[in-house]
Design a binder for these strands. Structure first.
Lengths: 349, 349
DNA sequence: TTGAAAGCGCTAACAC
DNA sequence: GTGTTAGCGCTTTCAA
């Protein structure tokens, strides 16, 4: 025999289908005895709602669409975990789209996810195509952009300033006494470009930006690539004594390459990573990295979309980032006072 | 104005809705001129199919349900990538469920995903609850179990023998000259238990299993935990001179802890990881690990479910695993001949 | 090769 | 607080 429907449950409970529907969707609007009867019937028959029928009738889904650039990048699995937590126990389900860092693929995928309208949409970054923005406009559902901040979000944006984070990290390297600071970047998406901008501006402010200081590639990042990029960097920039890396994978690769070359970290080479995904705090030496609020971004995005009245949230939320200073950049054993003194002196210039 | 439907497209193309439906779903069963007309109308109106309506009418979905134990475990993101590749360009979409290693949560989630019936189901492991198995039976859709092998899969199972993989790795440690070999395990799911079994059986066969050789925890694995577990292990088992780790995170943690303690790897301590997720081949020293066919498992599972006639596939596919021997276990600089000679000698006992 | 009719299981809108 | 009616947009079945 086939799956029980609302009608079956209604028959079992001695009420009509629509009453069962109501009892299930808004238990508080229904009498206690009815609720009990319905619950029993549901259990007895093993009733499971048919999502498609519900979606078709209501012409809106219970799914939250999330478009992420890469499923293999740990950055996004952290974000997803946050979203997942926010959705846990709610009636919403996640629909994940993998754009491969391609706005056109994002557009194509999103189009197929947008009919019927999802309960909400989460997008990484602010580089949607015009067509994508139009589609989202037409759908009208709430949209949360994540990972970045900007002044004119579609509805909400939750993230932090990558430029600011990179500037802070680079300033730390300067303060720590490094003179010839390089940049290594892979998977140069727009946010990585912003980090590069922050890096450059911090160095330019001190007139310390070397012409061969930047080594970037669009290949996906991994540890081995970090080693290779470091080799490339020091090939062009032999005096290089510190490296700001686009992410932690690259930073670890640099650390390993230094070990292979017998370069001491932090004395001969300083290393700073980005995202602080876990290993950097455990390695030998531990590696300085920018701690970014990935899970919090996901959780807040999920929270906004699952609220009935999300309008109470600010449209732009800058969650900030924190530089976790570790052994890989402790060139001299400053105490905080020292650092602060040097910082004020530098700022006075 | 609202979204165009099949009827709108039909009107535009001068045919009926059902004809448009056919032209879209089976272009080969329709005349060329009709196909062209329909394609034009679709483009002109910006028609996007309504999945819910289609699903409701056909009472089966285009989604492939994947239940994975953990979204944050890189093992599963590799598997997901394989599935994603297999599904790319097909009409199927992925529906991912996160079970948190809990068979009951798997059952609960799956129940909600099973109405209407998905096009296919992918499950990790073989430890489904009876209720889960019954549900799957009732749905009748194709089911692929992954990550493991067994003799009686629901429909198909694709994976490798964890016991065999661990036995091979442990035998390698013995052959490499280690005398007091320990096991470190976190997140002790059934497959990890099988690895432990393989580890024990390899040592017992040589009468080398020390009573304090095993340190395990159910906490999720990470690098820091690897360091902590190693400390615990050598606390109970001070003579320990090699460690087989449940996964690469732990192995890296052990490596870092050895560096902190000034223990040389591989001379004083040998280290072997599991899954070979990338860093192990890049670290200093490189770390021996068991290379497992994660992406291939995902791809094959996806491939089976997207075929019209999947019956041509073997029900049990053992993709095997390969031990990648690296510097962390090269205690003496054997060449392969040496290893083989020692191996035959050991086997002769 | 194409079309007409019926219905998938649910919910919105309105009645009682 | 509960029921009736009328679809949501598509596919199935059968007919032409």
């Amino acid at each position: 025999m086939s799956k029980p429907t609302l009608v079956d449950v209604g028959r079992e409970a001695g009420v009509s289908a629509i009453t069962v529907s109501r009892a299930l969707r808004s238990p508080e609007k229904v009498s206690d005895s009815l609720r009990a009867k319905v619950d029993n019937a549901v259990r007895k028959l093993g009733y499971v709602p048919n999502q498609s029928a519900s979606t078709l009738a209501a012409s809106k889904t219970n799914s939250i669409v999330v478009m992420i650039p890469s499923t293999s990048n740990n950055v996004f699995s952290d974000v997803l975990r946050g979203i997942d937590e926010a959705l846990k126990g709610s009636r919403f389900t996640l629909q994940i789209g993998n754009t491969g860092y391609d706005p056109l693929e994002e557009e194509r995928l999103l189009r197929s996810f947008l009919n019927p309208a999802p309960a909400g949409v989460i997008l990484a970054g602010i580089e949607q195509t015009d067509a994508t923005k139009q589609m989202l406009q037409a759908v009208g559902g709430p949209v949360v952009q994540i990972m970045d901040v900007c002044s004119n979000p579609i509805d909400w944006i939750i993230g932090f300033s990558h430029e600011q984070a990179a500037r802070t990290a680079t300033e730390h390297l300067i303060t720590a006494g490094y003179q010839n600071i390089g940049f290594i970047g892979a998977q140069m998406d727009p946010r990585s470009q912003q980090r590069l901008t922050g890096f450059k501006s911090a160095l330019q402010a001190k007139d310390m930006l070397h012409q061969d200081a930047v080594a970037v590639t669009n290949r996906p990042s991994d540890v081995g690539l970090g080693s290779a990029m470091f080799s490339r960097l020091v090939g062009n920039f032999p005096d290089c004594d510190a490296v700001f890396c686009n992410n932690d994978d690259l930073a670890l690769g640099v650390l390993f390459e230094c070990q292979r070359r017998g370069l001491s970290v932090p004395d001969q080479i300083g290393i700073c990573g980005f995202n602080d995904l876990g290993i950097t705090s455990q390695s030998v030496p531990t590696v300085t990295s920018v701690t970014t609020p990935l899970k919090e971004i996901g959780r807040l995005a999920g929270e906004i979309l699952t609220k009935d009245r999300p309008v109470s949230y600010q449209p732009v939320v800058d969650l900030g980032s924190i530089l976790a200073i570790r052994d890989s950049t402790r060139r001299y054993q400053f105490d905080n006072q020292d650092i602060n003194r040097r910082l004020s002196k530098l700022r006075a210039n």
